[in-house]
């Protein structure tokens, strides 16, 4: 793959992060409404969403980092790299 293709794979990273956190917030919000534990699950949701988002980002970027380390072309692994 040419260099630009590798950069294209990270084109949707922002959406990924935003939507993960948003999903956590929305889920927590409804859980709170359902269980009546007003601020608890929304905070848990934010935390979980953030963790998931960053873990996902890490997995996407991992092959690129291995490329940096090896100084060669990144291995075409399935681990991550979806955006």
């Amino acid at each position: 793959m040419p260099w630009w293709a590798w950069s294209l794979r990270f084109a949707g990273l922002g959406w990924y992060i935003a939507l993960c956190i948003l999903a956590g917030i929305v889920g927590g919000y409804f859980l709170d409404r359902w269980l009546g534990t007003k601020p608890l699950f929304i905070l848990v949701g934010i935390l979980l969403g953030t963790v998931v988002a960053f873990y996902g980002v890490y997995r996407m970027v991992a092959p690129l980092m291995s490329m940096e380390k090896n100084g060669g072309s990144p291995r075409n692994s399935n681990t991550g790299s979806r955006s």
Binding site: A11, G12, C20, V52, G56, R82, S83
Partner: peptide
């Protein structure tokens, strides 16, 4: 996670 990122791609596209 893979599935989510695949689906989120639709949104980002």
């Amino acid at each position: 996670l893979e599935l989510i990122s695949e689906l989120i791609r639709i949104v980002s596209f």
